[in-house]
């Protein structure tokens, strides 16, 4: 699988490249937006990793160009040192499939790349039982088995949990979740989604202590992450802070 990486900082470029290689992908590196666009005209890439701030053009423009000109567009990951909430939403709304603030954590980056790849090029899963690591979804009974414990969910909760697990490490917009789980159901209270999220978080114990974190993304949506992938780095930082 070929990944195009665009960043004007050689240090960052090098880090992303090494993470991608270690994960078994083939990274192609660009330091100017125009160069990437030229390459996209001639070549096919399975994933784009784009920095926001570039000397010649904005990374958002590259995302928009790819959305418009590539059919179908490859999954795109936006990386930037902008950390503000509005920036995250602006990047996601500009067409990025996910977003990662710098400094990049190699573990998180790898998880996100894998998530995007799995989502875009996944094999159809076998019907009946669906297995995500130690979590098993039983379609027939709307039950989920986690850590040996089986929890029965309502139909909506089950659909919501399944959607989150299928898109592990991927930011899902509220609109996407609502359309997928609720369809075009009218009179849907805007609080309904928050309340369902709150319930499955409690029922399935989606807390960092149990290995999962359910993170709200400012005015955009939610993301479910497996903590084991990130805790090493963050915990390391925290311990160094202390």
């Amino acid at each position: 699988m070929k990944i195009a990486v665009l960043d004007d900082d050689p240090v960052q470029l090098e880090t992303i490249s090494s993470v991608a290689q270690a994960a078994g992908y083939r990274p192609v590196l660009f330091s100017r937006a125009q160069a990437l666009i030229s390459a996209l005209r001639k070549d096919t890439f399975d994933l784009l990793i784009v920095d926001w701030n570039l000397p010649d053009r904005s990374g958002l423009e590259v995302l928009a160009w790819a959305r418009t000109n590539l059919k179908p567009p490859p999954p795109m990951l936006l990386v930037t040192s902008r950390a503000e909430d509005e920036d995250i939403v602006a990047g996601l709304n500009a067409g990025a499939d996910d977003y990662l603030p710098k400094p990049l954590s190699p573990a998180v980056l790898e998880a996100r790349i894998n998530a995007l790849m799995r989502r875009a090029y996944a094999q159809p899963s076998t019907p009946g039982a669906e297995i995500h690591g130690d979590t098993v979804f039983h379609d027939s009974s709307s039950a989920v088995t986690r850590n040996g414990k089986t929890v029965v969910l309502t139909a909506k909760e089950y659909a919501l949990a399944q959607l989150l697990f299928r898109n592990l490490h991927r930011a899902l917009s509220r609109t996407y979740i609502l359309e997928t789980v609720w369809g075009n159901e009218p009179n849907l209270n805007s609080r309904s989604l928050d309340m369902h999220i709150s319930r499955i978080r409690t029922k399935l114990e989606l807390r960092p202590e149990q290995g999962f974190r359910l993170t709200p993304i400012y005015s955009y949506g939610y993301r479910l992450e497996r903590v084991s992938a990130v805790e090493a780095l963050m915990g390391d930082i925290a311990s160094e802070d202390a």
Binding site: R207, P208, M234, G235, A238
Partner: peptide
């Protein structure tokens, strides 16, 4: 829920 989100955000530091 907001309080839970905040706690989850700081979980790596807390657990460390």
């Amino acid at each position: 829920q907001v309080l839970m989100d905040a706690a989850d955000t700081l979980w790596p530091q807390a657990s460390a």
